[in-house]
Design a protein around this nucleic acid. Sequence first.
RNA 1: AAUGCAAGUUGUUCUAUCGCUGUGAGGUUAAUCUCGCAGAGGAAAGUCCGGGCAACAUAGGGCAAUCCGCCACCUGAAAGGGUGGGUGCAAAAAUCGAAAUGUUUUUGUAACAGAAAGUGCCACAGAAAACAAGGUAGCCACGAGGUGCGAAAGCACUUGCGGUGAUAGUGAAAAUGUGAGGUAAGAGCUCACAAGCGUAAUUAGUGAUAAUUAUGUUGGGUAAACCUCGGAUGUUGAAAGGCCAAAUAGGUUGCGGUAAUUAAGGCGGCUCGUCUUAUUCCGAUCCCGAUAUUUAUCGGGAGGAAGCCGCAAUGGGUAGGUCGCAAAGAUAAAUGAUAGAAUAUACCGCAGGGCAACCUGCGAUGAAACAGAACCCGGCUUACAGGCUUGCAAAUGUG
RNA 2: GGCCUCGUAGCUCAACUGGAUAGAGUGUCGGUUUCCGGAGCCGAAGGUUAUGGGUUCGACUCCCUUCGAGGUCA
Length: 144
Amino acid sequence: MCVKVKNYLYQSNYCHKVEAKFTKQERLCSKKQIDLLFLKGSSTTAFPLKLVYMETDVAYVDPCQAMFVVPKRTFKRAHDRNTLKRRMREAYRLHKAPFYELANSKNKKMLLCFLFVGKKIEEYKAIEASVLVHLKKAGAFLNK
RNA sequence: AAUGCAAGUUGUUCUAUCGCUGUGAGGUUAAUCUCGCAGAGGAAAGUCCGGGCAACAUAGGGCAAUCCGCCACCUGAAAGGGUGGGUGCAAAAAUCGAAAUGUUUUUGUAACAGAAAGUGCCACAGAAAACAAGGUAGCCACGAGGUGCGAAAGCACUUGCGGUGAUAGUGAAAAUGUGAGGUAAGAGCUCACAAGCGUAAUUAGUGAUAAUUAUGUUGGGUAAACCUCGGAUGUUGAAAGGCCAAAUAGGUUGCGGUAAUUAAGGCGGCUCGUCUUAUUCCGAUCCCGAUAUUUAUCGGGAGGAAGCCGCAAUGGGUAGGUCGCAAAGAUAAAUGAUAGAAUAUACCGCAGGGCAACCUGCGAUGAAACAGAACCCGGCUUACAGGCUUGCAAAUGUG
RNA sequence: GGCCUCGUAGCUCAACUGGAUAGAGUGUCGGUUUCCGGAGCCGAAGGUUAUGGGUUCGACUCCCUUCGAGGUCA
């Protein structure tokens, strides 16, 4: 009995935690899909970031896949690029849950790509704000 | 005590929440979940060197190419690094001396083998930039010519002739320096001394090298120009290389079918293959004949191929997976984000001490340098906030 | 990850085997010509030869260091 209760608890925890996870399946890795996305996807900007997005019907995409890009042209140092990517990923991870629910309810699948357009290293809060704006816009696209 | 420069060393810690990568155990068919463990530097950087490792090549030797280059010892697999010494150059100080110079000491510095094997180059200026050579500067009046005087010998003057390479001049650099002889004037032309260099011998030293003696010689610089000498290196790099099974359209080969039949006999390794004879078949090719409209159809002969379909094999291409691969380890590339707290230093404020520079205590602020592994090691180079240690520098304050 | 090439006026390129004020076109500025503009003609400015060292009497050139740009690989 005890084990069953424990398992139940774990499952309930899992339901809460899955909202804030970012596993490998949610990352956009396939080169073909990336090429497609940049060919056919539409885009929006809100200052430090730019979002390129697109609908798909690929089987292995659960609700969405996302990737984060910082151009080497503006940031020469590897560690600057790393910090920016980490901040972007973190912001997306914490705020993606409502977007996922929307997508699941509409039965649609999305590919997302966040490009860093700014030329200075931005603080976490600025990035978080722009990610929120982008997610709202993508949600509006889903609603259409 | 503070300031600057150089070298060495160090290059935050703790808690909470939510995560990331790998891995072990457990549950589950599996996806995945839970728990535990591990997870970025002194340079991970530049890729400037040297290895390991891998594949290929390889009788032996040479050429080419690249790298290294005073000596001894220590360290290292090697490149390299360290300590000490030698030589050259530069600076400073001391000393001898009238001075130059020399000697000694200290500090810094050197891609520090060879320019006397050979080739090339050395702008402009200058006579000349290297087997020497020489002018309307200068010096000379010996030789040659001319003029004058003179009986002649000779003397004097002179030179678009001649001699000279001392002086001046050029240049980054000018053929070793000083003195004497010598001479028309001069010149290593001769001699003495000194200096440099080569060779040989002896002595000291493990050695680089130094000293002495003998003998020869006066030969500019450049090897970070080619080059010579000595030493080292086979070539290519993880996109190396091994393994795996799919899909796609070609190529080649084999078998079967489309359509290649049947019968008899011979031979062999005898459920099969092959040969001969007779018979049958043919849509591709060639030849002949007939019909008709260029084309097409029909008949006969030669000939038994090519094409198409299926299966299998083979080699190459496209695109993957996995091993290589790690007590960090991926392949759109992890090692984090947020919140709170602690402390070092700097700055600010207040108080105390001190003649002063400054020091001590309390409060507020609260990590902010350079920078992110991709096969692994060792070195080199470059970047670096603040702390600590050591050395040097010039000037100031106090005692 | 390995390897290779390049960096010169605002721009595009020269400068021989080290030799002297680094040159040409274009652009800029000034003058001239024209009623005005353009074109033409004349003249001028503009360079730390990417950076910092070294070799040499002398470096765009040779050697080393760093920075930046570009290319290439089965």
